[in-house]
Amino acid sequence: MEPKQLTAADYRTDVWNDWCPGCGNFGIVAAMYQALAEMKADPAETVVISGIGCSGKTAHFVNTTGVHTLHGRSLPFAQGIKLSNPALNVLINAGDGDLLGIGLGHFVALGRRNVDLVVMMHDNTVYALTKGQAAPTLHRGEKPKALNEPNIQDSVNPIALAVTSGYTFVARSYSSRINHLKETIKQAVRHKGSAFIDILQPCVTFDDIHTYDYYNKRVYELKADDWNPIVKDENEIQQKMMQAIAKSFEVDDRIPLGVFYENPLTPTFEERLSEKLPSYLGTPPSREKIEKNGKTIVDGDKFVEIFSQFIVEY
C-alpha cells in the first residue's frame, strides 16, 4: 500500500519534544520509531494512544494517528477504537500512575478480555508530570527526591498483576536497551491478544534512585537456554503463569528483562465477538453502512420483522 518504504525518521513528528534532557522516554520513542519502520506500519492504520503524564505526550511525537486521552483512561479509549475497527494496529503508552494508579481497574479488565493491542508502561516509579510523587511502582521505604519521607505504601508487582489479570504476553524491557525494547515491541505487536510491556524508564528529574546507573548494574536478559515462557498446551497455562510470577519477584539486585509469559492459545476478544457475530471481522462497527441516501437502512417491513416481539396488530 505504502509506495515508499518509511524510515525510522519518518515516524517522528516535528512536534518539539519537550521531555527533560536525558529522559528515559527518549529511548522508548526511539525504539518505537525503529520498530514501526521495521514493521512497515501504515501511519493511518496505526494508532498510538496515551494517557496523561509525561508519557502521555508520546502520541504527539509519533507520526501515526495519535490519541492523547485522559489520565488513566487510555485503555478504554483504545478498546473502543480497536473493537470498532479491529484492523487497526493499536499501541498504548501509559504512565505507571496512569495505568496502575488511577486506571488500575481498566488494566485488569483489559487482561480479562485479551483484546489484541499493546500496552507499554513507562515505569519511572513517580508521577512525573505532577512533580515526582510516589507512583504505584515505587517500593515501600524508597524516597525519591520529591518525597519528604520514604514511601509508606507498598508497590504493585506489574508483571504478576498482568499475568494474573489475563494478559497473554507479558514482558519487561529497559529504555536504554533500545534493541531489546524494539524487538520486544515487535514481538508484542505480532502477538495476538493483550500484550503488556513494563518498560524501565529513568526519570532523570524526579527519580534519583532508579537512575541509568542503577538499572545498568542490575538488569540482565532472560535467555532461551534456561527460560521458556511460552505456553504450548492449555495444560501448561497455570505452570507457566506460576513460573512468570515467581520470576517477577526478582527485583532487587538482579532485574530480569525479557518475555515472562506468552500464551498464544487464549482467544482474543475479537475472536470471541466474531464467534457470536460472524460478520464482525469482515464488517466491523466502523465499516457498517448505516444509511442510504440519508435514510436508515431499515425499512418498515424490516422493522416489523426485527422487532416483531414488540409489535401487536389490532
Binding site: 488513566g72 473502543g80 487497526l88 462497527p285
Partner: peptide, 22 residues
C-alpha cells in the same frame, strides 16, 4: 460492550466514535 465502569463506558464509546462507528 459491557465495561468495568462508566468511565470506561463513555471513553470507549468516544474511541469507537473516532473510528466512524455511531
Amino acid at each position: 460492550f459491557q465495561t468495568e465502569d462508566e468511565i470506561a463506558a463513555v471513553t470507549s464509546a468516544i474511541g469507537a466514535s473516532l473510528t466512524g462507528a455511531r
